[in-house]
Simulated scan of single mutants.
Amino acid sequence: MSREPTAAQRRVIDAADPVTGRLRGTEAQLTALVRGGLAFRHPRPPHDHFLTPAGRRLREAPAGAPERPAPSTEVFAARVGGAEEEVPPSAAVRLREVRSAWQGLLELRRMTNPDGAVDRPCAWERGHLVRAAALALEAAGHHPKTAGADGYRVRATPQPEAVAVYAPDAAARSACAATLERAGWQAGEYTEPRTRVRYLLASPRRA
């Protein structure tokens, strides 16, 4: 969203069903939340609206917390890894945010996969490959690369529906591959022809 939710929109978010994240509000309120990445409209009748992981994060913010920066259009700002990424100021807060985002993503799978499956990625993940793969890794306890520590890096590739995952060594690559496979991805190890760097090529499983 380009700005924080209005007071009325925030009341809609706070009143969401605690389990499913189902929303009640005016069409204008719900449309604005969808546009801002805080809600999604279910594709099947009766086309109810539900919180996205970002919406769940906002709802779970402690009462009286300072206003957050306007959310981006990404459902969740997963850490993709890189020397430019900063370590979150509070590891405990970040852990809660990541767990909430992952649970919200599983709910998104349940609500948008045609058969309600939660063991394979949904359409949103296939449209946001780097962020989705990074969230799966971070939610499982892997640490991204930062200026002060080595870790995974997730990068886009020219191949359709595939991301490259770099890790410090063979054991880390194997652990990342296992995590992604449990999260519904397919992952195989490859070598870059020019640099000889080993990496994982991962893509969301469809069935």
Results as ranks from 00 to 15, higher is better:
87 V>L: 09
88 P>E: 04
88 P>L: 00
89 P>C: 07
89 P>N: 11
89 P>I: 11
90 S>Y: 12
91 A>N: 09
91 A>P: 05
91 A>D: 05
92 A>E: 13
92 A>T: 09
92 A>P: 11
93 V>R: 12
93 V>E: 08
93 V>S: 13
94 R>A: 14
94 R>M: 14
94 R>V: 12
94 R>C: 15
94 R>K: 13
94 R>S: 07
95 L>S: 10
96 R>C: 02
96 R>P: 09
97 E>R: 03
97 E>G: 15
97 E>P: 03
97 E>F: 08
98 V>L: 01
98 V>C: 10
98 V>Q: 05
98 V>N: 05
99 R>Q: 10
99 R>A: 07
99 R>E: 07
100 S>R: 09
100 S>T: 15
100 S>A: 09
100 S>V: 09
102 W>P: 13
102 W>G: 14
102 W>M: 15
104 G>F: 05
104 G>R: 07
105 L>R: 00
106 L>E: 14
106 L>P: 02
106 L>R: 00
106 L>V: 04
107 E>L: 14
107 E>K: 11
107 E>Q: 15
108 L>P: 06
108 L>N: 09
109 R>T: 04
109 R>F: 15
109 R>S: 10
110 R>V: 10
110 R>Y: 03
110 R>I: 01
110 R>H: 05
110 R>W: 04
110 R>C: 08
110 R>A: 08
111 M>G: 02
111 M>A: 05
111 M>I: 08
111 M>Y: 08
112 T>Q: 02
112 T>E: 11
112 T>M: 03
112 T>V: 04
113 N>E: 04
113 N>R: 09
114 P>D: 00
114 P>Q: 06
115 D>H: 00
115 D>S: 03
115 D>G: 03
115 D>A: 03
116 G>C: 03
116 G>N: 07
116 G>L: 00
116 G>M: 05
116 G>W: 04
116 G>F: 02
117 A>Q: 06
117 A>L: 02
118 V>Y: 04
118 V>P: 03
118 V>K: 02
119 D>F: 00
119 D>H: 05
119 D>W: 01
120 R>P: 08
120 R>K: 08
121 P>G: 04
121 P>F: 00
122 C>E: 01
122 C>P: 00
122 C>V: 02
122 C>R: 02
122 C>S: 02
